[in-house]
Each structure stands twice: as structure tokens, then as C-alpha cells.
Design a protein around this nucleic acid. Sequence first.
DNA 1: CCCTAAACGAGACGGTACGTCCGGTCTTAAT
DNA 2: ATTAAGACCGGACGTACCGTCTCGTTTAGGG
Lengths: 206, 206, 206, 206
Amino acid sequence: LADRAHTGRARNKAARRAILTAAADLLGQCDPAALSVERIAAMAGVGRQTIYRWWPSKGAVLLEAMVERAGSELSPIDSGTLIGDLELFLTATFRAASDAPTARLLRSVMAESLRDLHAGEALREFTARRRDVLREILGRAEERGELARGVDLDLVIDQAFGLLWYRTLLGHEPLSRKSALGLARALVRQVAPGSLARPGRPEPPL
Amino acid sequence: LADRAHTGRARNKAARRAILTAAADLLGQCDPAALSVERIAAMAGVGRQTIYRWWPSKGAVLLEAMVERAGSELSPIDSGTLIGDLELFLTATFRAASDAPTARLLRSVMAESLRDLHAGEALREFTARRRDVLREILGRAEERGELARGVDLDLVIDQAFGLLWYRTLLGHEPLSRKSALGLARALVRQVAPGSLARPGRPEPPL
Amino acid sequence: LADRAHTGRARNKAARRAILTAAADLLGQCDPAALSVERIAAMAGVGRQTIYRWWPSKGAVLLEAMVERAGSELSPIDSGTLIGDLELFLTATFRAASDAPTARLLRSVMAESLRDLHAGEALREFTARRRDVLREILGRAEERGELARGVDLDLVIDQAFGLLWYRTLLGHEPLSRKSALGLARALVRQVAPGSLARPGRPEPPL
Amino acid sequence: LADRAHTGRARNKAARRAILTAAADLLGQCDPAALSVERIAAMAGVGRQTIYRWWPSKGAVLLEAMVERAGSELSPIDSGTLIGDLELFLTATFRAASDAPTARLLRSVMAESLRDLHAGEALREFTARRRDVLREILGRAEERGELARGVDLDLVIDQAFGLLWYRTLLGHEPLSRKSALGLARALVRQVAPGSLARPGRPEPPL
DNA sequence: CCCTAAACGAGACGGTACGTCCGGTCTTAAT
DNA sequence: ATTAAGACCGGACGTACCGTCTCGTTTAGGG
């Protein structure tokens, strides 16, 4: 390839990729205040206007970068039992979020979304999809009859993700594997207390 | 003699008050991006240097303002039962956090603490003290023998505050009274399942 | 290929003009301490950064403004005699410098050039060109054989401009037309004493 | 009224001395922009208010410091001839002004006097006294009958000091001994052309 | 010999301007 | 028509001084 003095029309996709990659890389770096459009553009080898042409604001770029990076880990989970699904999902999610660059990324993204409406909307959308995954897991348990009646599933879901974000944002406590397993069991106690008779294994619904 | 304890003009307490009040007022207003030191100084009728003289960064001012404002609502809770204490604490906390200006304040403070190390430290300190309140409630329940064994109290506590912050930061779901009560019950199910036999009333320990 | 001559938006000439005009206007106003970059930018309707982009310091702007304003009055002088040239040049120069806004401008420019290296260099350059005008006048007299031998022309020139600046900066004495004529005659007495036999008319060299 | 001549602590002469010394030292140092009251006070080991109590502005302090430092060199000159007096006075004056710290001091003082009214007035007063010295020299020559008629002495005096300041402020040419002697002779040519028949020695008035 | 008012070192105060950085928009030449 | 480069306006940043205003201490007279 090589040279390409500097300009040209047909760059579109490469530029888009470069921008998102640069944004994600910078998001994963330490300082959330050093996140300027200029820096992203420079790292991507792109004009600043090219960013503003496609995204409404800085936050929107960052969110899209984050979504792309985090969106890949969506592997369907179905162990056949609620506790199994929860353990799988939560340990995987906690492990991902406790990776240092990813944690920085999450913090930066939240910081951005609190300042920028576009980013806020995008983060809301992103988190909604994550909650859907958990809701589906709980839905399958319900179909199997595992769930007690009258459980507020939204409350359960927000406890899980709330704990994840709370610890990530504040950093007072790590997102350990142990806490993921503990959380899984705690949630089951709330929604399907009977299924924990033999811990780790669901009781047959009988 | 050793030394003069102090020389020079004393710190102006009125200025300090004016700064914190102005900071809290601006925190409660809508736009978290309009939170500039210049604006705080102007609203407080104070030179900008007077702020930088006493606080290491903008975030430190905001956090101190928030702590002052939020710190007053600490009323001791002791209903005699775990579920009662939790219901009291959580409904009060949720109600406070769902007040629109306070919610904006919390979001602004979190945004600031994600960018500024001083603010981060201060928010960590602030939230730690809030967790202590909840931990004390749980501790009293333990002394009464209400708690099941081997419960990870930190996990429980972080579920509660996590949910609070998660909903406040994202705004996808309100912090209703109903959810506070639901959360209280959910937490009790995790730590003291037996005590919910007759809902809202603890069973006699016997 | 070598290189692209230039990329990006071209420099806005209107902004440059507005900045220099604003600077010159402010220079001509009373207070030399009220000369801030902020004020210049505001009066020019320009961002502050646009000034810093093109000039290394405030003084450099002011000097360029002064040079532009003062540079226009360069009309060639050649009356055929030394005394005639000097009278023309000095009366014109003194008259210009005794104009109140111009005098303020000169004082401000000197003040700036004493604080700012860039401005100092520019003022040095500016004054050198003014001295050249006088030197040329004297040079023509020399070609005509009017000058006595062994005269230190630099000394003569600096007496003239020295007097001009000295009175302008201190303001103890006005730059009157009478003093311009007196100075012209005094200088001729130094360098070509014979040519004043009949005042105002050079004697034939013979 | 005249009641109570004075009460309270007397003015500290040591502080006054320290302030003027510090000011003069800083004036003689390179950077004229680094001349802050804070720095003077710190170097003098004095509170800032002690300066403002006794002088109306920074410039007034600097000027007084300069006057004190420069005022000592006033030794009466009387060689008996105009050219002799001028040579003595101008070589001494030029030598003093070409000393690097003194030249910096003069530049700083002029810079200050262009910004500060008090300093301006003080510098005007200072220079007036220096002109008086030269005027006295010329006055004695007049009494001896050396001077031609109709000479504008103010013009002559301002040529001399003008040249001194012009070269000091711009720095394009040094104040050499040679130029002092040349200037002495040039001035004599203006005011007493006959007295230079035998250079360096006045002709007997006959 | 004490009293008292002023001067002192220190330093906080409300301001103003500095020079830098970034956000989001507009313009240019090149392809 | 889109790109990379980059100038543009606006506005906040954190710093440096300005000149004023307390602080608590020190000290030179007058009583």
C-alpha cells in the first residue's frame, strides 16, 4: 500500500474502523480526562471533521467503540438450570469487567455518558441489551417453573448489574469470581429458594 | 516558643460557605457540563483563586458540597427487626435519591469523580460511610440471631447501593417506593429467609 | 514530490486585519496598562487563540500594528539641499509624533518592547528603517560634497531620533515645529557648517 | 489641631532600606517583566503591605530605588571650558549608563514609568534634575561668553540625553567613550562653533 | 513602667489577564 | 463528494500578580 500521500475519497470504512479502534484504545488507557477528539483523530490518522460527520458528539464515538469491543462476548448460555446459567453468565461478565483496561473503559464510558446526551442514550441502549440477556435466562427458568411467584425480575436484574457497575465505578471491592458465584446463589435464593436444596444443583421441580 | 501557630489573615468562613452553597446549587441544576470553577466562583461572589487555595480540584469542591448537603439526613434507624430497618432505610434513601435535583447532583458527582482523583477519593469515602449504615443494620440483625450463616454481607450491601446508583446513573427505571420495599424483602430473603414467614413481621427467634 | 505546499483552511485575512486594527486602536487610547490580549481579541471579534496562533506574544502584535500604521507615511524627500531635506523630514516626523494618539502609541510600543523580547526586536527593526531614511538624506548630501569630513553620521542620526523619543517618552517638552527647524539647523551646523552661510540655502560647494 | 504629634510604632528604617535595596537589585537583573511587588517584598523580607503603606505604587518604589542608586554620582564638574566640561560630563554619564546592570535598570524604570503615573512623574523629576546639570554647564559657558546667540539650549540638552536614552532603550549601538567625545564636540559645534578652532581647547575669547 | 496606637510579617480576599487546551464548525486543496 | 489538514470562535483551565483587608505580634513614644 504504502504511500497514499494523504487524501482520497474511498476511505470510508477504513477510517471508521480506525476511529473506533483508536477510541477504544484510548478509552482503555488510564486518564479519562485525556480523551479528546483531537487525540482520537490523530491516533486514527483521520481528520477531525470525519468524526463529526458520522457521530453527533465525542461521547457517541466512545460508546460505539465500547459497544463494538464489548459486544462480541455474547455467547448464548443455557446450562439447563437457573443457578447454572447465572453462574456462567455472572462469572463471565465479572471476569470481563474486572480486566483492568475494560474496567477503565467502562468508567470512561460512564463518565462520558453523564456529560453527553448522545453517549447517555447509547449507554442506556447498551445496558438494556445486557439486561435482556439476564432477563432471558430468568425467563427460561420461569418457563421451567423454577421461579417463585410475584418476583420483580427488573429488581433482580438491576441488583446484579448494579453491583457490577457500583464496584467498577468506585473500585472499593474487586469483582472476584467468588463474588460472582455468591451473587448467583443470592439471586436464586430470592427468586427460586427451593432450587438450592442441594447447592449448585437444582432440585428437580418435582 | 517553638513557633507561631499561624500568621496572616484568617480563612473567611463566609467565603467557604458561599462556595459550597454555590457548588451544591449548580450540582443540582441540569447540565453537568456547565459546572465550571468560574461559574461557582461567580455565583459565590468569590475570586477563582480562593477556590484553588483551599481545594485541590473542582471535583473536591463538588464532593465536599455534596457530602455537606447529603450528610445531614443521617437519622439512626432501629425498628427492632431486620425487615423493618431495611424498609425504613431503603425507602428513605430511595426517596432522597429520586428527588430530581438530588439525582442530578449524584450524577454530576459521579461524573466528576470519574475524571478527578481527588473527587474519586472523596466519593469513595462518602459511599463507604453510607455502606457502614447498612452494615450496622445487618450487624444488629446478626446479634439478634436473625441472619443465616455464611452470608457475604458486602455482597448484600453492594446489591442495594448498586441498584440505587445503577438506576440513578442510567435512569432507565425510577427508584420507586415499591422497589425499595421489594428490595428490602429481597435482601431479607438472601440473608434471613426464615424471618419472612409472615411478611413484614419477623418470626419469633424460637 | 517533496511535499504538499499547504493543507487545511487558509488563514483568514479579515481576522488578521481586524486584530491589527483593534490593536492599533487600543494602542492609541490612553491607558497603556489596559492593553490586554483579551481586549484586542474581543474588539476584533476573534478568538484569543487566533492571536496566539500567529504572533508569538502580545508585543509582537502591537509592534506589527504600529509598523503598519506608521509605515505608510514614507514619502521620499529630496529638496536638493541638506537643510531643506532635514527641515522637511524633521517637521513631518515631529508633527506625526506630536499627534496625541500617535504619541500614546509610541509610548505603549516602547513600554511593550521593554518587556517583551519579540516586541523589542520588532521595534529595533522598525527604528532601524527610520534611521535609514535619515542616513540616506545625509548620504545624498555627502555625494554633493556638502558634508565635512570625519563626521560620525550615526551620532547625528541618533541625536535626532533620540530627541524625538526622549521628548515623546517623558513629555516634558512638546515636539514643536520650531524645535524641528531648530534641530535641522543644529544638525547642519554639525555636519556641514559652511552650508548655513545663507540660512536655508546651501552655499555653492566651491 | 496639632494635638498628639504621633503615637504608635515608628517607621522601620531597616525595612525601607531593605525594600529599596531589593528593588534596585531586581531592577538590575535581566527580566523587566519579573518585577513584582511580591518578589520585592520577599527579597526584602517584608510584608507586602509595608510597601503599599509607604509608596503609592510599584513604580514609585522602583523609581525611588533608581534615584537613590543613580543619585550618588553627582560630582560637580568645572574644567573651565565648555568642551572640557562636556567631555567630562558626557564620558562619565555614558560610562555609567553603559554598565550592564545600570542599563537594565534604566530600561526597567522607563518601562515602569510608561505604565504607572507615579513612576512617570518621578522619572520626569529625576531626568529634569539631570538636565539641570547640563544646563548649568552651558550656563557657565554663556557667562564666559562662549555661546553663540539665539541657541535653543533645551534642544541641545535633549539631544544629549535623547541620544543616551535612545541607545540605552533600543540597544542598537553602544554608548562608547568615543561617542561621548564625539557628542561633546558636536554639541560645541552647535552652540559655540568658534571655540573648536583648536580642537579640545577653547580659543581664548579674545 | 505601663499604655496604646501604629507599624510589622504573614497571608487570605476579589479581581484581571495570562497562555494553553479542547469542542464543534467551516474552509481549503487534493483525489 | 469525501478526505486530511487545519484555521476559526468560544470558553474553561490553573497560575501569577495586583492592591486591599485582616490577623496576631512587636515596639516606640507619651503619660
